[in-house]
Design a protein around this nucleic acid. Structure first.
Length: 256
DNA sequence: ATGGTTGCTTAGCAA
């Protein structure tokens, strides 16, 4: 089973690239983030024609997440269903081929200390409670998405310039590590222990040409699946060329 | 350098 996670930064402006990506990699499942559109305007037909079902949780202008899959998803759940007052579409879950798939777009956090930063930390706390309430670590489960956190300085090309920012702050790292400690494994790290590989480069300040990147997109697997992971890569080429997303897709394969 | 680029929406926000 091959799964990809990709923050597309608008599914409509990235549709041509997305369809080409599906053809190039032939993934069984794709978790998308930052759709930036409502369900009404989601390109279901084009994605269906490429051979994929779409389970989506959309929102106008901002956020929005989806799970694309060759086999039909079931038991689709949108948001954390915890009664919190939260209008932001950032989490969707579904069963696909016997695996629980979660696509998450973690809050960026604005600047450390801001209201958005507090929301980011609280959102990760809620996610930990969501996993605890709805799942068991003995399940086959994949939490995929843009976490907006680089867990380690070896996932940051220029750690000194990103230190203490929302993507690298120790409190954010601790919050994501708390989620992971529930029973998840960073399969990309396990396959690429040396670091130095990135999934996001800022559009500004020549981020990609200078390779000023961070690995902030993750595929996190429960241990039964992590043991079966055979490969984990980043499609850095997808960041090249005309009209790329600012994120590159992360892809993992599992022998099920 | 509180900068810069992109997308949605059409002036300002979010990233």
């Amino acid at each position: 089973m091959k799964i990809a996670t990709w923050n597309v930064n608008s599914v409509r402006s990235r549709l041509e690239r997305l369809i080409a990506f599906l053809g190039r990699h032939d993934p069984d499942i794709v978790c998308l983030q930052e759709l930036k559109t409502t369900e009404e305007n989601f390109p279901f037909d084009e994605i269906k024609a490429a051979g994929y079902h779409s389970a989506i949780f959309g929102q106008k202008t901002y956020n929005g997440v989806a799970i694309l899959s060759k086999s039909e998803p079931s038991d689709v759940s949108r948001s954390m269903t915890d009664g919190a007052e939260d209008p932001q579409a950032r989490l969707i879950s579904a069963d696909v081929a016997g695996v629980r798939i979660i696509s998450g777009y973690f809050p960026n956090g604005g600047t450390v200390g801001s209201d958005k930063w507090e929301y980011k930390l609280d959102w990760m706390k809620r996610l930990g409670a969501y996993l605890e309430k709805h799942h068991k670590k003995s399940e086959a489960l994949l939490l995929c998405g843009d976490t907006n956190i680089a867990l380690d300085d070896k996932d940051v090309a220029n750690p000194e310039s990103w230190a203490e920012t929302v993507l690298c702050h120790p409190e954010g790292r601790a919050a994501l590590n708390d989620v992971i400690a529930w029973g998840l494994h960073d399969v990309f790290r396990e396959k690429n222990p040396d670091g130095g590989l990135y999934s996001w480069w800022d559009y500004r300040m020549l981020g990609f040409p200078k390779n000023d990147g961070l690995r902030i997109d993750h595929i996190l697997a429960t241990s039964s699946l992590a043991k079966k992971c055979t490969a984990a890569v980043i499609d850095r080429d997808e960041r090249k060329g005309s009209k790329p997303s600012d994120h590159a897709p992360v892809i993992a394969e599992f022998s099920l």
